[in-house]
């Protein structure tokens, strides 16, 4: 028996999900961060973040079409993490590293938190 493994299938699917997001197709939730709004797919959010997984597996909350995050969350940090969820690329700017890491802690994205820790350690003189 043989099996064909398409090695770039996961990234091709993610690319298409990101195109759907950028065109606002089948996005089903608005994330409010301070006054900024981000449209996204619940399934992608919950696949990447422990916080969103908890929210959307709760039968009382899974049908919400808008979620407000803690006002302490920095929209710029959230935007970078949302971009990461849809592209697998995490932009770590030194000026934003603390807000990215704190947002990742809040969103329960443990692997990203570890990566931020390593980035901070490696840039420490």
């Amino acid at each position: 028996d043989s099996c064909i493994q398409f090695t770039r299938h996961a990234s091709d699917v993610l690319l298409n999900l990101n195109r759907l997001r950028s065109r606002d197709i089948l996005t089903d939730v608005t994330i409010l961060v301070n006054r900024q709004q981000f449209r996204a797919h619940k399934t992608v959010l919950m696949a990447c973040s422990g916080l969103f997984y908890t929210i959307f597996t709760d039968s009382h909350k899974c049908n919400l079409n808008a979620i407000s995050l803690d006002p302490k969350v920095d929209p710029e940090g959230f935007a970078i993490l949302l971009e990461f969820m849809y592209t697998s690329r995490l932009t770590l700017k030194e000026s934003l590293i603390m807000s990215i890491m704190n947002t990742a802690i809040y969103l329960q994205m443990d692997h990203v938190v570890d990566t931020c820790h390593r980035f901070i350690k490696s840039s420490d003189p």
Partner: peptide, 21 residues
């Protein structure tokens, strides 16, 4: 998949949704 001959296909796996129609 143990014992199955796995062939790697490195080309695109699905159509690409355009940025805009």
């Amino acid at each position: 998949y143990e014992g199955v001959n796995t062939i790697k296909e490195r080309g695109r796996s699905i159509h690409e949704i355009p940025r805009q129609d």
